[in-house]
Design a binder for these strands. Structure first.
Length: 262
DNA sequence: ATGGTCGTGCTACGA
């Protein structure tokens, strides 16, 4: 049975409850992974999601910051969370589907403004978080697994609107890209979005500060779908739903989709 | 080199 999965940094699940429902009704993915819910788990508006047919949820939350949730039409088994770099943040949760596939939903730290851990603690925490992910995947190699989320790094030159201009901008610096590559390598993760769309500029985030985001198109691909090699060849039909970024009172991220024939 | 815009929750902080 094929199933479709989407990942979306929602930037407040409470403020954008209506947009989540619109996406669920319009695209009807079997599983929707959200990041930056900015809500305790017991304040996530689950009733509306239940009404849309998403009767299962596995989530971690905190007041005002971070937060990750997996909404599903299919039953989910909560298989835990990790707190890499001991930040005490709700940035990861994992769940298992009835077909045995494990889904990891991540919100990697943004990393602050200055790409220098000596002057910016947040940048060091971001690198340490990625190192924690790497070490975990090395110690416990994932199998039949999908990893999605806002990884806050655009690794390829064509994942940003201007590679040279962004080399010293947090999200595209060589040290971040190297850390992400190590994390990906440690789990043998396949970049499903780029397996399906190998060529051309592709973005999933456009800053709120850009006055005309669509025309200016100064985007970055910060949101990712990865899978382990034992299921990567079952993936297809990846896409970024750019139109969602143009909805009323939008998130600054667009959802990324992939389908798996499993 | 700087500022631009959001969301949360209280006037600052994180993205």
């Amino acid at each position: 049975m094929p199933f479709t999965l989407a990942t979306w940094n929602i930037n407040s699940v409470r403020l954008r409850e209506g947009l989540v429902c619109k996406l669920l009704e319009q695209d009807a993915p079997d599983v929707l992974c959200l990041q930056e819910c900015k809500s305790p788990v017991d304040k996530i508006p689950v009733e509306a999601f239940h009404a849309a047919g998403y009767t299962h949820m596995v989530a971690r939350g905190q007041k005002g910051y971070n937060g990750v949730a997996i909404l599903s039409k299919l039953p989910l088994e909560d298989v835990g969370d990790k707190d890499f770099a001991a930040l005490g943040h709700a940035r990861h949760v994992a769940a298992r589907l009835p077909n045995g596939v494990t889904i990891h939903n991540f919100y990697v730290p943004a990393g602050g403004d200055k790409p220098d851990r000596e002057v910016n603690v947040k940048f060091g925490q971001k690198l340490d978080y990625l190192t924690g992910m790497r070490d975990w995947f090395h110690a416990e190699p994932p199998k039949k697994a999908i990893l999605v989320g806002d990884l806050n790094i655009a690794p390829r030159e064509d994942d940003v609107w201007d590679h040279k201009k962004l080399l010293r901008v947090v999200s595209h610096t060589p040290i971040e890209v190297a850390h992400l590559a190590e994390t990906q390598g440690a789990g043998n993760w396949v970049d499903i979005t780029r397996q399906d769309i190998p060529e051309g500029n592709l973005y999933s985030w456009w800053s709120y500060r850009s006055p005309d985001w669509d025309a200016a198109d100064k985007g970055r691909r910060l949101d990712h779908v990865w899978a382990t090699p034992d299921i990567s060849n079952a993936a297809h039909s990846s896409r970024v739903s750019r139109a969602v970024r143009g909805w009323e009172q939008p998130s600054d991220h667009a959802p990324v989709f992939a389908t798996f024939d499993l």
